[in-house]
Every structure is written in C-alpha cells, then in structure tokens.
Design a protein around this nucleic acid. Sequence first.
DNA 1: GTGTCATAAGAACAAAAGTTTTACAGGTGA
DNA 2: TCACCTGTAAAACTTTTGTTCTTATGACAC
Lengths: 216, 216
Amino acid sequence: MTPNRKMPPRRKRILEFIQTFIEDNGLPPTVRDIQKACEISSTSVVDYNLRLLDRDGYLNRRPDVARGIELLDDSGQPLNSVPKVQIVGRIAAGAPLPAFSTEGNAASQEFDTIEVAPELPRKFGKLYGLEVQGLSMIDALIDDGDVVIIQPAQQAENGEMVVAWLKEEEEATLKKFYPEGSQVRLQPANSQMEPIYCSTDNVEIRGKVVSVIRKF
Amino acid sequence: MTPNRKMPPRRKRILEFIQTFIEDNGLPPTVRDIQKACEISSTSVVDYNLRLLDRDGYLNRRPDVARGIELLDDSGQPLNSVPKVQIVGRIAAGAPLPAFSTEGNAASQEFDTIEVAPELPRKFGKLYGLEVQGLSMIDALIDDGDVVIIQPAQQAENGEMVVAWLKEEEEATLKKFYPEGSQVRLQPANSQMEPIYCSTDNVEIRGKVVSVIRKF
DNA sequence: GTGTCATAAGAACAAAAGTTTTACAGGTGA
DNA sequence: TCACCTGTAAAACTTTTGTTCTTATGACAC
C-alpha cells in the first residue's frame, strides 16, 4: 500500500481517494466516482491508471463487477474484507512456542480467529495472534485469556515490546526489549516489576507485539 | 441487526446473506447476487423485501447506486464502514468522568477516534472509548495509554467489568462488579490485589467494559 | 525526422444492476 | 362476496457503470 518512490501524483491521488472512499462509504467507488474526485477528463484515463495499479499489485480489479476494486496490502492480501487474524496458539511462560511456520498445512489445521481493527493489517501487514494462558504474563499487564497481536520479526528496535524466547530457560515471554552491549534487558510493562537481564546469545526475537486485546 | 421476533424466513435469509457477502467480498451484493443466493425467482421480489428491510431499519439503500446496500446496527448506525469509536475523554482515579452526554454539540468538539474490530459495534451497538491516564488502573491490568471500549449502561450483571463512579470518593475506576446485598464488591482484574467494598448507594455504574486495547 | 512509449482525451459501446409495471395467490376482516 | 393486505412472480425498462476504440501529446532514442 505504501506508494512506491516516484509513483505518478495522479496515480497516488487515485489510490488515496479509493481508500478514503471505502472508509467513508463502506463500498468501493466506481470509475466515474474516481474521475470526478480526481478531476480526470475521461473514464478511460481512470481505467488506464487502475490497470497499472492492478499490474503493480496495489489493488485488484474484479472484471465486469460494479465497484469491483479491492485494495491490497503490502503483502498482496485483500484489505477491505473484515480483518481476521489467526490465533495460531497459546503462549505461557515455560511452554514451547507454537510453530509459526506452516508445518501442518493450513487446510488440515483449524485455527480460531480474532477480529481486529482494520488499521492493524493495513499498517503491519501479515499478523498472527497468540492467546495468553495463565498469569505468566501478568508482569506485562497481560491477563489470562488476553490475545496479543504479533507481527513476525527476527529483530527489534530499542524499547519495542517483543515475543522473546529464552533458549536456556526454554521460556517464552512478552517484554520490552533493550539491547545493552552483550546483554539484553527485558523489561516488564509493569513498572513495579523488575527487569530480566540475560546474554544476547540466549535471546531469540520471534515477533513484535503490535496490540493487546482483552474481551469481556 | 438482531432479527425481530417473527421476521419472515426469506427476509431473514436475505439479511444474513448480505452480511456474509460483505464479510467475504468486501463490498455489498447486488440485487441479483441476493436473488441467486437466496433462490428467489425474480429481482422484484428481492427489491420488495429489501424495501421492507429498509423501512424496518435493518438496512439503508442508496437509490440508483450499484451495490448501495448498507447494513445498520441496532441503533440505526451504519455498520459496514470502518468502525471508529470516539475517545470521549480520559479516565483516571480521582478525576471526574468526562461528560458522556452531548453537552457541547458534536460539531464544536473534536474527538480522537480509535479503530476497533467490526465485531464490537455489531455486537454491542453504540460504544465510546476512554483513554486511561496514569497507573491508576494498574490493579485492573490496565496500563497508562490503554483505551477501554465502553458500552453505556446504568446496571450490570454479576461479575461484569464496569466503569464505576464512587460518589463519596469522587473517583472513577474499572472493576469487576459483584453486588452482595446492600454492599457492592469491586474486584480488580489482578488476582493479587484486594477488592474494594462499598455501599450500594455510593456506587454508580456508568458503562460496561467490552474490550481493552493496547497499542505499541 | 521517425518510431516508440507512457500518458491523456473524447466518444461510443456493452454489460451490469437498479427500478417499474403488471399480474396472481392466499389470508383477513367487513 | 368483496375489498384489502402481504408476499411472490415474470418481464421489461432505465440508469449506472465497466470497457473499448480512436486519436493526440510530450519525452526520448535512433
């Protein structure tokens, strides 16, 4: 979705209009809606630009379907359908992390899903969810049953909340990540709790936490 | 959205199909899509039923617009646009609750908004958000900056998480609500913390918490 | 200059999709 | 029985909307 370097201004404007239109109206615009909004003299010009945006992977056009434009995210996934994130497993201190790779193929495996704000897949691309089991994450202010939304990652910036795997302890945990030389400080979200220090070698980042959702 | 008692089965089927179609395809169906899916012999019958559903407040039809069906929730609000919830203010222990009523009219007041899962407005209707300020809610496992999504309510069931206003203390708090005779027990979400007991007279329920969202 | 390519324009065409018109069957109450 | 209402039906009509055809312009290479 993020417009490439040097996308022609007209095409950029079209793309932005489509997104705004969908948000405002709950359905995609017609070619003529775009024509008027972007001050284009002919529908054929809109069609031409849409075809290029389609070719370059910014959107999908269903042929012969009125308002058949579908915006795609960075990884080519549809964007305007209801955003559901797969809950690929549970996380608990001491428990092994569920396999993120698709070892059993998706067809054979039934996943629970959770609906998230459309904003999240739009901003972060492909995501997955983990249900927190027990009170093992309570120092990160995360309760039993909360779902953490994770963006897969192998590295993290200073201060980001990450899914960290402690190799020696064989323990998964959610903490804020602070590299400090050859050591890593893992800081709970709860300021009343003490941080964990361990060697860089012993920590593996599995993903970044982009949101925590608690339902009642 | 919840179909009334005694909604004709055909109309119920149409309504359910529209919702499924939007979720699956990201845009509303045409009259003929509905016709085929619900095995109706004529488009005019679909049109007839859609007009009744419109009249009864289940949906909105934009005249002369292809796929111009818009589903409405229980309170008559649009449902298929990106669900944004207004953050009407901040909540902190000891601070007065923001005015929920529209005293200053909406036009004059700029609200922040937060995107939520489409599921929430669908299930709970009109919602608002409160941003938690400071660590006053930490015993409910809620951090500074978290947003709680609230369904307005004056009463609550046993065990529900509520926004409670303690009159004497002039204090707002998020707790689980347990009426116990003439007393009320307000239990933090964090099992390591102690509950608060106070008299029924001193507690005012302002709303129920339906979700907590934490972003990074 | 000449050819090519990306972009834009105007007009017309064809398919999709909303709307209307007329008709009919079953039930209800005067 | 008759008017009346709800629900269904078939076909035709009109508007909306996707698509195509032809032409034009400026940039660039040869």
